[in-house]
Design a protein around this nucleic acid. Structure first.
Length: 187
DNA sequence: CGATTTTGACCTGCGC
DNA sequence: GCGCAGGTCAAAATCG
């Protein structure tokens, strides 16, 4: 998952540098200019995570072959024999838009204003364990995963998936707080 | 006491 | 086709 590397520009020593997204080479939507502004959006009450991009434009560089199938959502699967198996086979191939960024922080979970419920953790090969979170807002299926960068325990990689469809829960002043702890990471 | 975290099992996709 | 790696579920435990 290192197709995209979003780094926040902000000298570690200096300060007061406006945040800038530096996308590796592919961003959700593929054409939307990455920007990071706080002005209250028309629908998303100031979307930090409710970032732009439209569906279907997700470019993963890898498996975007069978992505344009018209298989929108098809939850109705005949449950013929559901005995020893737990109904998790919803096989949602439709990947939502994703974006990630790195920050330097002591805590894994950034306070981005939304409420998250942890639903899993997995030990990734050669890396630190990755944690999986879901937005607890009813009807909001946004997910995010957090993991530390190998070799640099201080760096946290946060990957968001999906777009929030509800106003943020906390004042956006939090963003500034987040930004204050964001630093560019160069290997 | 309700909401959230922990944790192991289960499922799926991909590479060999 | 099998095995590994990653992602999700859900029951039990924990927290506020």
């Amino acid at each position: 998952m290192d197709n995209y590397q979003l780094l926040f520009s902000s000298s570690s020593s200096s300060s007061a540098v406006p945040p800038v997204f530096l996308f590796g080479h592919s961003f959700v939507g593929g054409s939307l200019p990455p920007q990071f502004s706080f002005h209250d959006g028309p629908s998303f009450g100031g979307g930090f995570l409710g970032l732009m991009s439209t569906e279907g434009g997700v470019s993963e560089v890898k498996d975007n072959d069978h992505q344009l199938d018209d298989h929108r959502v098809n939850p109705v699967a005949d449950e013929s024999d559901v005995k020893a198996g737990k109904k998790k086979g919803e096989a949602k191939k439709a990947r939502r838009q994703r974006f990630a960024f790195q920050t330097r922080s002591q805590v894994d979970l950034l306070d981005d204003g939304y409420r998250w419920r942890k639903y899993g953790q997995k030990a990734i090969k050669n890396k630190f364990p990755r944690s999986y979170y879901k937005c607890t807002y009813q009807g909001c299926n946004v997910k995010k995963q957090v993991q530390r960068l190998l070799g640099d325990e201080e760096v946290v990689v946060t990957t968001y998936e999906g777009v929030h469809s509800h106003p943020i829960d906390k004042p956006k002043e939090n963003f500034e707080h987040i930004l204050s702890q964001m630093h560019i990471y160069h290997p």
